[in-house]
């Protein structure tokens, strides 16, 4: 592909990506940042953990996205008795009274599956997590004596952070498979809140989702185009040094002068970002640069996704784990505020 057609393709896809955002923003109010992060994850081909309370619009948001990017949308609820095979197949008695086995939500759409929503993933048992995480990594599963390929699937999983009964914490190795953990919070704006409770169009989620223009993107071309973005966006040596400093600062924040009030910083972090996590950080940062119409990375591109990509990967000393959400946010903010660019290398 020559440069001109490459540029046209990039511009064309960017227009579509911005249109997708604007379409979703028509039905989901007060979530501009979350929508940008999810767009980034879609183009970076990363799986997403959603963080937020109940009834904030996560399902509507995901259904809107699925409609915008095309392909199939599947969903499963995490429960304490959910077993791995419930994801792969389900059994029932057919009209003839004979037992029948059909593909479960993961396999039902085959290669057309574009968005898989695992609601309350931490209510499911670790065996279920293990299967999901394997599928997320390998994008295929063996069932019914054949391989099911899921090349276009992006997993969105929601964690119930409020209740602790009958939940299974997702281990750090499993969290690391998710590119981002995106907070979906109740909009802060009073106008937005007023709309959500008084505007009747928000009363019917399904009808609301139908307002989003469908097939804005071609879900089956996203993998290829994602590679195009990654090859197109350049990073300078200064930027590479900066990314390395950021990585090191997640492992040893004290070395970079990062301070947190009331926290012994040298004992806070047990394990910083993984190489996979840093790779995902740069992947998402490149997408952010492209969405902002640039062909080179800026520090701002990393900042735009840093917290959402790094925070859930950090493993804290158990004495600080009870406050991990707040501490992780504070730590990532301090790292961005403290690690200088250009550094003295």
């Amino acid at each position: 592909m020559n440069t001109v057609s490459n540029d046209i393709e990039l511009a064309d896809w960017r227009t579509k990506a911005l249109k997708l955002e604007s379409e979703i923003e028509k039905v989901i109010v007060g979530q501009t940042r979350a929508i940008r992060l999810m767009t980034t994850a879609i183009f970076a081909r990363g799986h997403v953990l959603l963080e937020g309370g109940v009834g904030v619009g996560k399902t509507t948001l995901l259904q809107s996205i699925a409609r915008g990017i095309g392909g199939a949308y599947e969903r499963i609820e995490g429960t304490v008795d959910l077993m791995p095979n419930d994801i792969v197949y389900h059994t029932y008695l057919n009209s003839e009274g004979r037992p029948q086995i059909d593909e479960g939500p993961l396999l039902r759409a085959g290669e057309n599956l574009s968005v898989f929503f695992f609601n309350e993933i931490n209510r499911a048992r670790p065996q279920v997590h293990a299967l999901m995480l394997r599928v997320m990594a390998e994008k295929h599963v063996h069932a019914f004596k054949k391989d099911y390929r899921l090349p276009h699937m992006v997993v969105f999983a929601d964690r119930n952070q409020v209740e602790k009964n009958e939940t299974f914490e997702i281990p750090s190795a499993a969290r690391d498979r998710f590119m981002m953990e995106i907070p979906i919070v109740i909009p802060a704006s009073r106008e937005h809140r007023k709309s959500l409770i008084f505007d009747t169009r928000f009363q019917h989620a399904e009808a609301l989702t139908q307002q989003v223009e469908d097939h804005i993107l071609q879900f089956d071309q996203l993998n290829q185009f994602s590679n195009t973005i990654q090859h197109h966006i350049q990073s300078s040596p200064v930027m590479e040094e900066y990314a390395l400093d950021l990585w090191e600062s997640t492992q040893d924040p004290a070395k970079f002068g990062v301070r947190l009030e009331g926290v012994e910083i040298s004992r806070l972090v047990q394990s910083g970002a993984s190489p996979r996590g840093m790779g995902m950080l740069m992947k998402a940062a490149r997408v952010n640069a492209w969405l902002n119409g640039r062909d080179s990375l800026l520090p701002e591109d990393i900042h735009a996704v840093f917290h959402e990509i790094i925070a859930h990967r950090l493993v804290f000393n158990p004495m600080y784990d009870s406050k991990r959400t707040a501490l992780a946010r504070e730590l990532t903010a301090q790292i961005i505020n403290t690690v200088v660019v250009p550094g003295r290398h």
Partner: peptide, 23 residues
Amino acid sequence: TKEAFYHMHAAFNQWYGGNCFAQ
């Protein structure tokens, strides 16, 4: 040139009380 930019950014950071970027 990189060192010169480093000194300038350091001055901005000092006045800002943290990393100061274009935004």
